[in-house]
Design a protein around this nucleic acid. Structure first.
Lengths: 246, 246
DNA sequence: GGCCTTACAGTGGTCTGACCACTGATTCCC
DNA sequence: GGGAATCAGTGGTCAGACCACTGTAAGGCC
C-alpha cells in the first residue's frame, strides 16, 4: 500500500496511469493472476477520475495485459502472443511487401532454435518432431494439409529449442507464416521433383537434430530455405512461361 | 430464446466502437493521414458517450493506429511496428529468468542480420560500423561508456542488414539488452586479457563483413558470443574464489 | 435438513454535462 | 505592417449518477 506514492507529475493523466501500471508490471509488483483493486478505489489512489483510469485500463486490456471481467474485476494476465499476431496481420494489410522481410526473421529464429534443439531436445521432443515429419509425408499432395504439416514441423523444432524468447518471437510471426505456407504449397505443388525434395530436405534436417549436430542442422535448414526460394522462383517463371501458350 | 444470439452483435459498447474503427481501417474507409471527426461529433454518430468513445480511441492510439493531438484532433496513422518494442519489453520482462534466454534471441537476430549485412551493406554502413568500432576501442576501460559502445557496434551491424523485421525485433529486445550490457562489462572488465580479446573479436567480425563473407561473419560472431560467455563464467568463478580470502 | 429462490453488495459499464488546456487563426491595437 | 490579445474548436479531465453483471448470503419452500 505504502508503495503507491506520487512522484513525477510531469506526465499527463492517462500517461501517468499507464506508466504506473507498466512499471508495476515490469518490476514485478503486479504478477500474472493477481487481481487489481476496484476502479473506484484505484482512481482515488492514483488521483485521477474513473473515466481516465478506465482509458488506461482499457488500453492495457487491449494489449492483452489485463483481463477485465464484468462484475468481477480486472486481473493481470500473462501477455498474450495472439495480440502480436493480430498486430502483424493488421499492419500487413497496409504494407504488403513486408512478407519477404518476415522470412528473414523466420530464418534467424529457426536457425538459432535448431542449434538449441540439438543441445536441449528431449526424447519426447524428437518424437514430436518425428511425428510431424510423418504427417508431412502423408499430406504431400494436399496444399492445405501439407502446408499446415510443414508449419507444424518447423514449429516443433522451435519448441524443442526450449527458449521462451525465441518461441515468443516465432509465435508473433506465426500467423503470417501459416498463411504464406499454404500459398507457397499451392504454387509449388506442381513443380517437378518438389515432392521428393520436400521429404528429403525435412528428413535431413530432422536427422541432424537427432545427431545433435548443431552446425549441420543450421546448414541443412538454411539450405532448405534457400532451395525453397529457388523452387518458388522457378515455379513462377514456368507459370509465366506457360501463360502465353494457353 | 433471446439468449441465443449469433456472435457478432452482442458486443459491448466499447468493443463496438473499436470494431467499427478497426474495420474502417482494414477496408480502407479510413486512410492514413486522414483526420477523424471531433470526439463530440463522433460520439453522437456512433450513439455512445464521449468517455466511452475515448476509451476506444485511446486504445487505438496505444496500438499505434491513431495519433491524437491535443487541440488539433485525431489522425489515422500508418500502423507503427515500433509499438511491438513496448510489447516485447512487457511480455518478456514478465517472465523472471528470461534475460539469459533473450540472449538466444539476440544471437539469432544478429547472426542472420550479419549475413544480410554481408550482402547488402553500403559503404556508409561499413563506415558507420567502423566508427563504432573506434569508439569501442576508445572506451575499453569505462564500463558504462564501453557497454554503450559495444551495444552501438552490434546495433550498427543489424541496421546494415537492411531488414525491417530484424531491426524491429532487435529494437524490441534492445531495452533488455542494454540493461545487461553494462552489467556484464562491470563484471568482466577486470578479467585478464579481456581488453585485448574485445578489440580483436570485434575487429574480426567487422573485417568479415567488409570481406562480404557471410559464413565467416556468422561464425566469428557466434564465437564472440560464446567466448563472451566463457569470460563471464570465469570471472564469476574467480569472484567467488576471491571472496573467502577477503 | 437440504435445495432452490431471492435479495444484496460489490464490481465493471455507461451516461450526462460541465470545465480546463492546448492549438491555430482571426482580430485588434500600436 | 507587425505583433499581441482574443476567440472558437478541439482534446483532456472531472464528478456524480445510474445500469448490468456476478457471486454470495439470507430467506423460503419442500
Amino acid at each position: 500500500m505504502s508503495t503507491m506514492l506520487a512522484e513525477g507529475d510531469d506526465l499527463s493523466g492517462a500517461e501517468k496511469v499507464f506508466t504506473f501500471f507498466r512499471d508495476a508490471l515490469l518490476n514485478g509488483t503486479l504478477k500474472p493472476g493477481e487481481r487489481l483493486l476496484g476502479e473506484r478505489e484505484l482512481s482515488l489512489r492514483l488521483s485521477v477520475s474513473r473515466p481516465l483510469l478506465r482509458e488506461a485500463l482499457r488500453s492495457l486490456a487491449m494489449l492483452g495485459f489485463l483481463d477485465i471481467r464484468h462484475g468481477k474485476g480486472a486481473y493481470v494476465r500473462q501477455a498474450d502472443i495472439n495480440v502480436l499476431s493480430d498486430f502483424f496481420t493488421f499492419s500487413l494489410a497496409q504494407q504488403p511487401d513486408i512478407l519477404d522481410d518476415v522470412m528473414q526473421a523466420r530464418i534467424a529464429i529457426e536457425c538459432q532454435a535448431i542449434r538449441l534443439a540439438c543441445e536441449r531436445a528431449t526424447e519426447s521432443d524428437l518424437k514430436r518432431i518425428g511425428s510431424k515429419l510423418t504427417r508431412l509425408m502423408d499430406t504431400l499432395h494436399d496444399p492445405i494439409e501439407g502446408g499446415a504439416a510443414d508449419f507444424a514441423f518447423h514449429q516443433a523444432i522451435v519448441e524443442a529449442g526450449h527458449s521462451e524468447a525465441l518461441a515468443t518471437l516465432y509465435g508473433a510471426i506465426g500467423e503470417l507464416l501459416r498463411r504464406s505456407h499454404v500459398q507457397r504449397r499451392e504454387v509449388t505443388v506442381s513443380e517437378p521433383g518438389i515432392v521428393d525434395y520436400l521429404v528429403e530436405a525435412h528428413r535431413e534436417v530432422f536427422l541432424s537434430i537427432v545427431d545433435r549436430n548443431s552446425d549441420a542442422a543450421d546448414r541443412k535448414l538454411r539450405d532448405h530455405f534457400a532451395i525453397g526460394d529457388e523452387f518458388r522462383r522457378r515455379s513462377l517463371i514456368s507459370a509465366f512461361a506457360r501463360r502465353p501458350q494457353t
